[in-house]
Design a protein around this nucleic acid. Structure first.
Lengths: 249, 249
DNA sequence: TCAATAGTGTCTATAAGACAATATACC
DNA sequence: GGTATATTGTCTTATAGACACTATTGA
């Protein structure tokens, strides 16, 4: 909430004090054959820049002219990096402090986004030759990228933790798949994010029992021995919450 | 993430663009006999101020000199309003946009805090004669306060939604109680936040089965017909997560 | 002894994991 | 028909809700 105190002798709304830098960062995740991947961009090499040539989450400063709100800013940053098809976008939280950017007190608003692999090639629609997909562990480590710029290791870790915790009891992994998808594909997405195998029978029983989750969308010819049933989401707007999480085991 | 683009002809780190206002707001919650209460402060009456004399969540601008990070800023705001005894503090998220403050593009970082009733009297240690506890519904409505300043109705609503959703599967309500507390008291806290009654037997069985949740702390003489067993938290640092949520019923 | 609150025991229903069995398509 | 994948059925087990019962204290 904007300040109420006005101890200074200036008029009622005294706003002449230093303001933090304000940014938005996005952990854009997708699914490859190996598992989860995250999109990173390489920072400019100029030595005057903080963390030159390091890999970082895509993002950048709020533009108070262009961005109507935080979510709009996140969407704009996403568009600039990749041709996304209506990604799932959720705020993870915000990180702010005096030390996290050498240029001064800064606060960043972190989002994570989920997209199906096909529609999310960087460069395809995006202008980012400096953007690449990296395999990422469930703990948020990116083996191939070294230490990320700023506190982005921590931000990415938090984004993955959020995703992992919600997987247990929501339909989030479905947003990693292109529609229509099959139940075995959906189970694979869950297993990739959970980091463990699930029982086929229990998974299907459960997924099909959740109201408002899946709608049948015809048989799919995948080339598999038996052609599987295709499904689409009932609500693309957001995830469905399950009554109970997967058993811990 | 701070910007990487430097299209402008200025040197590598061009930071001469308008910055948003940055604030922190806190939904401080406690438990009264009736149920949940929230602490609100009244905005100054000067007509030059935005939303004069309206009730608002406690909070205010980041002070880049005093506040090392966002959480420290939230703790400072809390100290200024009430004498809290190590409250539970958790970030809810951030809200930012061009319209939410008439003074300009602003972003606020929202926290919710839980304190036991006894130690949280405003004025006791706090300097806020303009602060008051209000009964609040589980939906986040404050019947006695009218429309809150700024978008604080929405922020409060989000804070309560976060609390309610976590109650189902965490030990959060315990932070609304002074230690040592009894199991019936704990059940009462859960019922207040859940908005429904729970079965005693199931509740005890469950609460006592969660590892790392409760530790016995002697019999308490409350004046009740039968003196109950007292408990304290194993970890005051944060909530414990249950393997399964309460059944929907 | 009664009243009131704290705490326990037991039954049942639900749903998840385990795992076997069946269906379907392409070679 | 054989094989690989998709889908279904059944058994067991764990746990939550329901509800009755016991325990302890003070009037």
């Amino acid at each position: 909430m904007p300040a109420k105190k006005s101890n200074a002798p200036s008029p009622a709304t005294a706003l002449e004090f230093p303001r933090p830098l304000v940014t938005v960062d996005i952990a854009l995740l997708t699914l490859s054959g190996n598992g989860l991947q995250v999109l990173l961009v390489q920072r400019p090499r100029a030595p005057a820049e903080p963390y030159p040539a390091r890999w970082a989450l895509p993002g950048g400063f709020i533009d108070v002219q262009k961005d109507h709100d935080l979510q709009a800013c996140a969407m704009r940053k996403l568009r600039e990096k990749t041709a996304v098809s209506s990604p799932y976008l959720e705020q993870v939280g915000s990180w702010g402090g005096a030390e996290r950017d050498p240029r001064g007190w800064s606060a960043t608003h972190v989002y994570f986004a989920l997209v199906p692999r096909e529609t999310s090639e960087p460069g395809k629609g995006g202008n980012a030759a400096d953007a690449r997909w990296f395999d990422v562990t469930l703990g948020g480590l990116v083996p191939g990228a070294g230490a990320l710029a700023f506190d982005h290791d921590e931000l990415l870790c938090a984004a993955l933790q959020r995703l992992r915790s919600k997987v247990e009891y929501t339909s989030l992994p479905a947003f990693l798949l292109a529609e229509p998808f099959t139940l075995p594909q959906l189970q694979g997405a869950y297993e990739a994010v959970l980091g463990r195998r699930l029982d086929r029978s229990a998974f299907r029983r459960r997924a099909l029992a959740v109201p408002g989750f899946l709608r049948e969308a015809g048989i799919i010819q995948t080339g598999a021995p038996r052609a599987p049933q295709g499904y689409v989401l009932e609500h693309r707007g957001g995830p469905v919450v399950f009554a109970r999480p997967f058993e811990p085991r």
